[in-house]
Computed example of a mutant assay.
Amino acid sequence: MPVEASLLEILACPACHAPLEDRTAADPATLVCTSGDCGLAYPVRDGIPVLLVDEAAPQGSPTAA
């Protein structure tokens, strides 16, 4: 389930405050930080972004679920 575009416009990475990129079409569904320094991937569960740094994983990590 994709994240609504209007919601994605106001969401930011909790770690570095950079915009997030929607990758909910991928498996697992994630929102990825666009910052080159941060690059954390936040899981999306049941259409709800889990924006907790403790739940995030480095981009491309198999633990990003």
Rank of each mutant, 00 (worst) to 15 (best):
V53F: 02
L8Q: 09
E21G: 05
C33K: 13
L52F: 06
T34Y: 02
L40H: 11
S35L: 09
A12P: 00
L8N: 09
P2C: 01
E9G: 07
H17F: 00
Y42A: 08
L20W: 05
C33M: 07
T63I: 00
R45D: 04
V3H: 02
E21D: 14
E9F: 07
A29K: 05
R45A: 06
Y42G: 01
C33W: 11
C16L: 10
H17A: 12
P49E: 04
S61T: 06
C13W: 04
A25Y: 03
I10Q: 07
E9Y: 05
A56R: 03
D22L: 09
A25I: 03
A25R: 14
L7S: 10
A57S: 15
A26R: 14
D46I: 03
A64P: 06
I48P: 02
L11W: 03
E55W: 00
E9L: 13
L20Y: 08
C38N: 13
L40Y: 11
L31G: 07
E21C: 07
E9C: 05
A41I: 03
V53G: 00
P2Q: 01
R23M: 11
D27C: 03
V53I: 13
D22K: 03
A65E: 07
D54T: 13
G39T: 13
H17V: 01
S35Y: 14
L31T: 10
G39F: 13
A65S: 08
G60W: 00
D54H: 06
C38E: 07
H17D: 09
A12K: 13
C38V: 06
A25W: 11
C33T: 08
L8I: 10
G36W: 09
P19M: 05
L11H: 04
P43F: 13
T63M: 05
P43C: 12
S35M: 10
R23V: 01
D54R: 07
L11E: 13
R23W: 08
Q59Y: 12
V3P: 12
A18M: 09
A41D: 01
L20H: 10
G36D: 10
H17Y: 09
R45P: 00
P62Y: 03
A29Y: 09
P28K: 14
G60E: 05
L51A: 04
P43H: 13
L7D: 10
I10Y: 05
V32H: 09
E4M: 04
T63A: 00
L52H: 10
V32N: 02
V44Y: 11
L20S: 05
V44W: 01
A65T: 07
P14D: 06
A57F: 00
D37V: 11
T34G: 09
A12H: 10
